[in-house]
Amino acid sequence: MLTTRPGAQDSSGRAQGRCDGETGIVETLQLIVSGLANGCVYGLIALGFALIYKAAEQVNFAQGDLMMFGAFVALGLANESHLGLPFWVACIGAIAAMAVFGWLLERTVLRQVFGQPQIAVVILTIALGFLLRFIAGIIWGHDPLALESPIAGVNQRFGDLVLGLDELAVIAVTLVLTAFLFGFFSRTRLGIAMQASSQNQLAAYYMGIPVKRIHGLTWALAGAIAAVAGILFASKGSIDPNTGLLGIKAFAAAVIGGFGSLPGALAGGLIVGLIEPFAARYVASGYSQIAPYAVLILVLLFRPRGLFAQAHAKKV
C-alpha cells in the first residue's frame, strides 16, 4: 500500500475512464474485501508468531505449517470422503487437536532448546515445518483438497457489491480473536505472567511464575489459533501441504507490523493482504508478487522494529 499508492492511483484513474465511476468503486471495494480476508488469514498466522514471541520469545517458523496441518485435520474430520463429522464438531475437534499438538510440540521438542539462542529455535522450527509438510503429504496426499464448509461459496449481495460469506466470516472471526487475545494479555493474570516470563525468564521464575508450563500453554494457544486460521483458509479455497509456505508471507506481515505486538501482527497481515490484490491488478505481472517483500524490506530499512513496535534498549 505504502509503495504502490502513486502507481495505483494512476492506473485506477485509467480504469475509471474505461468503465463508469461506480463499477470502479465496486471493483475497488471488492479488491479491498478480498484483500482484507486474505490479510486476516496472514494476520492470524502472524498472531501465532507474535503470541509465541511475546510469551516465550521463540520465533516459530512453523506457524504456517501448523495452520496447514490444522486445516487438514479439520478436513479429515469434516469431509464426506473422510470421517464426515458435522462441520462444527470437526472445527472444535481440529482446534482442540491442534492445541494438544502445540502443547506436545513444546513439551517434547522445544523445551529441549530452552535457553538456547533464538536462532537455534528458528532453525528447529523451520525443520519442524518441513517435517509437518512431509507428514501431511503422506497422510493426505499432495493434490489440492477443499474443506466442505457451510460458508464456502455462499455469496452475500450488497447492491452491486457481491461478497463471499467466507470472506466476511474470516474478517469477523479474526477481529474477535484479536480482541480476545489483546484483552487476555493486558488484563488477565496469566497473560501478564506470560509477558513477564519472556522479558526475563530467570526473574519470572524467581517470582514464582511457572515459566515452563506457561510456554506449554502458549504453544497450545498458538496451535489453536493455527487451526482457526487453517479452517478459515480452507473454507476460502483449497489446501495442499505446500499451503504452509504461506507462513513466509505471514512472517513478513508480522515483521511489518512489529514483532511481538498483537495488533501489529494483524495490521501487518492486513497490509500484506491488501497489497497483493492491488499489486496484481495494477502492477505489471512479474513485479506484483515482489510487492509484499519489497514493503518488508522497506520497513526493515526504515523502521526495523516494525510499524507498531515498542522501543527498547539493552541494559549493560
Binding site: 536462532i119 513478513a252 518488508l296 524490506i297
Partner: peptide, 23 residues
Amino acid sequence: PALRLHGIYLAIATLALSILTED
C-alpha cells in the same frame, strides 16, 4: 543496510532477499 538488524530481523531480511532473487 542489514547491519542495523539483529538476529531474527536479519534472518527475515535475508529470507526476503532469497525470495526476491527468483523474481
